[in-house]
Design a binder for these strands. Structure first.
Lengths: 345, 345
DNA sequence: TTGTACGCGTTATCAA
DNA sequence: TTGATAACGCGTACAA
C-alpha cells in the first residue's frame, strides 16, 4: 500500500499538495502539478488508508445498521435475516448507503450496552435502528449523540431524538379489515405473534374497523402465534380449530398468512370458500400461495432506501422537517377474500 | 470520548501502562496498578478508538462480505437479499463473525475493481465471496493478498487461492432425481434460471441419474426461468404448457418450486397427482406450499457460520487442510412426489 | 503556489 | 515495574 508521503517524495512534492489534489482542493495548485499528481495516483493505484483518514478527521463514513433480534421474532428467532421483510429492507439500506459513498456495518444484538459500545468504538457517523421497540430506541438515541433513524418504531412519548420511517399501520389495517366487512364478513380473526409496536397499531386499526361496523370484539378473536411454534408446528392445531368460528382472518404478515393457509388447507378448509385471508407485506409469499393472497402492499426496499437517505441527509447536517415519515401502502386484491352475500350474524 | 492519554494523566501513569492493562499484558504490571486502572476504565466507560488501534497495528478486525448481484439472479435482481437463502446465509456469517470478536462489512457490487478498492481502503482482514462465479472469485483472490473464503463457488481449475464452502451439488441432486426415478418417474423436467456454477453441477447430477436409468435427455427437458420473468409472470404460461409432458419436475430452489406449483395449480394441475415436484433448500417456502414440498435440505445458516469460522481461522494464521469444505444435505420427503405404479414409457 | 509541522488515539520499542 | 518516545497515514493551520 503506497502512502501519500511516499508519493510526495517520489514526485518531489509535499504531502500537502498531494493531499490537496486528492481532495480536489485545486484552486491553489497549478494545473501542471495537478495533472502530474493525478497521473501518478492512477499509475500506482493509490488507495487511502481510511483508518488514518478517519482518525485525522474524527469521522468514519460508516452507517451502522442495528437489528435487535429478540423483539421481532417472526418464524425463526435464530436468524432474523431469514425474514424476507427484514432482509429486503436491509438490501434497500445497503443500496442507498453505497450510492451515497458511505459504508454499511451490520450489527445484530439484543444488548443495548453492546450496541452502544459497538457504535462508539467505530465512531459510526449515523445509526439505523431496525426491529427495535420504543423505549430501547429512545435509550440508544439518547446516549448516542449523532443522527438516528428508526424503521417501524412506535414511540410512546416521542423523544424527538430520532426520525422514524414507517407506515400508518393503524389506518392501513383499518382499510383492509373494512374491505373484509364490506364483503360481508363479520366474524374476523386477527393473527400475529406479538402485541407491541407495529402489531399493536395494526390491532387497533382492526378494532377500529370492527367498532365502526358495530361488531363486538372478544379476546378469542386474537390469534397469537407463539415464538418457535411455527418451526415446531405446535399450537397450529388449536388455532385451526378455533378458525372454524370465523369467516375471515387478518394476518400481520404474508408469511403467517401463507403458513396459516397451508395449515388450514391441510385440515380441509377451502380458501376462500370456508375462510377468507388477508396478509400484510405483499412479498413473494403472497404469490406462492394458492389461491393468491389478497394483501396490504408495502415496499420494504423503499423503506430501507428512504431510511438510509434520510439518515445521510442528517449526517450531512441537513435539517429534516418531520420526525415521522410515513410510506404509503395499498390493498392488493387477489383471490383469498370471498364475498358473503347473506352475511351471517 | 475519553482517551488513553487522558486516563494516564488523570491516574498519574503512562499511556503504556494503561494500554498494557487494557490488553491484559499483565505480567509486567503490579497487581495494585492493574486494579486501579481497571476500576477507572469502568468508571469512565472507556471505549477504544478502533481507527487509531487499526492504524497502529495495521489490521482492521473487519470481515468483508461481498455479494455480486448480477450472477445470481433469483426472483428479484434489484435486491439480492430478498432471496431467503442468501439472507439466511448472511445471518449465519454475521453470527460467527460477531462471536469471534470481528466486525462485518457488507458490500454488494458487480464491479470487481470496486470490490478490490473497497477492501483495500478498509484494510479488510479477510473476505467472504458469495454468489460469485469461478473466474471472478479467482481474480479477486489473486489480487487480494489475504484470506478468502467463497461460498458455493465452483472453480474450474481451482487456483488454490481460496477455500470454498459448499455442497456436493451434483451428488445431492443425483440422489433426489434417483428418488423420483425409483418412484416410477421417467419424464422428469429440470427447472432453473441459469446454467453456471451450482446450477450446472446440479444439472449434471440430474443427467447422471437419468443416464443411469437409461432415460434419454432432450433439451426440451430443461426449463429455464428468465431473469425478471417471475416478477412479471411472463413465460410461465409456456412452461406450464410444456409441463404437460412430464410426470415430475426437479427445481433448483424451493422458491421456484413453490412458484411453479402455484402457477401449475392455477392451470388445473393436481400436485402430485398430475405432476410431482422436488425442490432444493428446505426453507420456509417448502412449508408454505400445499401440499408440503419434498425437497433437498441444506442449512444456509450453517453454511454461513462455517464459512465465517473458517475464514477467521485463516485470518488468525491457522492452516486449513482442505480447499473444499462440503456440507451434508438430505432429502426431506413430504407430499409432492407420488409413486407411479405402472411407469409410463 | 508549495512546504513544514503538528495532531488524531493507539501500540510498540527500548530505556530507566 | 514503569515511562518516554517513535511510529501508523492522513489532513490542515500556518508559514514560506
Amino acid at each position: 500500500m503506497i502512502t501519500i508521503k511516499e508519493i510526495a517524495s517520489r514526485l518531489g512534492l509535499s504531502t500537502t499538495t498531494v493531499s490537496n489534489v486528492i481532495h480536489g482542493k485545486t484552486r491553489e495548485v497549478s494545473a501542471e502539478t495537478i495533472e502530474r499528481v493525478q497521473r501518478f495516483l492512477e499509475e500506482v493505484e493509490y488507495v487511502p488508508n481510511i483508518n488514518a483518514r478517519n482518525l485525522a478527521q474524527g469521522q468514519s463514513k460508516i452507517i451502522g445498521v442495528v437489528l435487535k433480534s429478540l423483539e421481532f421474532r417472526r418464524w425463526n428467532n435464530d436468524n432474523i435475516l431469514s425474514d424476507p421483510f427484514v432482509s429486503e429492507t436491509i438490501g434497500g439500506i445497503e443500496k442507498a448507503v453505497r450510492e451515497a459513498g458511505y459504508y454499511m456495518m451490520l450489527y445484530i444484538s439484543d444488548d443495548i450496552a453492546e450496541i452502544l459500545q459497538h457504535v462508539s468504538i467505530w465512531n459510526v457517523d449515523g445509526l439505523i435502528l431496525f426491529c427495535m421497540m420504543d423505549d430501547d430506541a429512545d435509550r440508544v438515541a439518547a446516549k448516542y449523540h449523532k443522527p438516528v433513524v428508526c424503521i417501524d418504531t412506535y414511540s410512546s412519548g416521542h423523544s424527538g431524538n430520532f426520525v422514524n420511517v414507517g407506515l400508518d399501520d393503524e389506518e392501513d389495517t383499518y382499510k383492509a379489515v373494512r374491505y373484509l366487512i364490506e364483503n360481508g364478513h363479520r366474524r374476523i380473526a386477527f393473527l400475529t405473534d406479538n402485541s407491541v409496536g407495529v402489531d399493536r397499531a395494526r390491532f387497533w386499526g382492526y378494532r377500529k374497523a370492527l367498532a365502526e361496523a358495530g361488531i363486538e370484539y372478544s379476546d378469542k378473536d386474537f390469534f397469537l402465534l407463539r415464538p418457535g411454534e411455527i418451526k415446531q408446528g405446535e399450537y397450529t392445531e388449536e388455532l385451526c380449530t378455533r378458525a372454524h368460528n370465523y369467516t375471515a382472518m387478518f394476518c400481520c404478515s404474508d408469511i403467517y398468512a401463507a403458513l396459516m393457509m397451508a395449515e388450514l388447507k391441510d385440515r380441509g378448509f377451502e380458501i376462500p370458500g370456508d375462510i377468507s385471508v388477508i396478509g400484510f407485506d405483499d412479498n413473494l409469499y403472497s404469490r406462492v400461495c394458492s389461491p393468491r393472497l389478497t394483501t396490504v402492499h408495502q415496499n420494504a426496499d423503499e423503506k430501507g432506501r428512504v431510511a438510509a437517505a434520510t439518515l445521510i441527509r442528517l449526517v450531512r447536517g441537513e435539517m429534516i422537517e418531520t420526525k415521522e415519515i410515513r410510506l404509503k401502502t395499498h390493498l392488493v386484491i387477489r383471490d383469498t377474500v370471498r364475498r358473503i352475500e347473506a352475511p351471517d350474524m
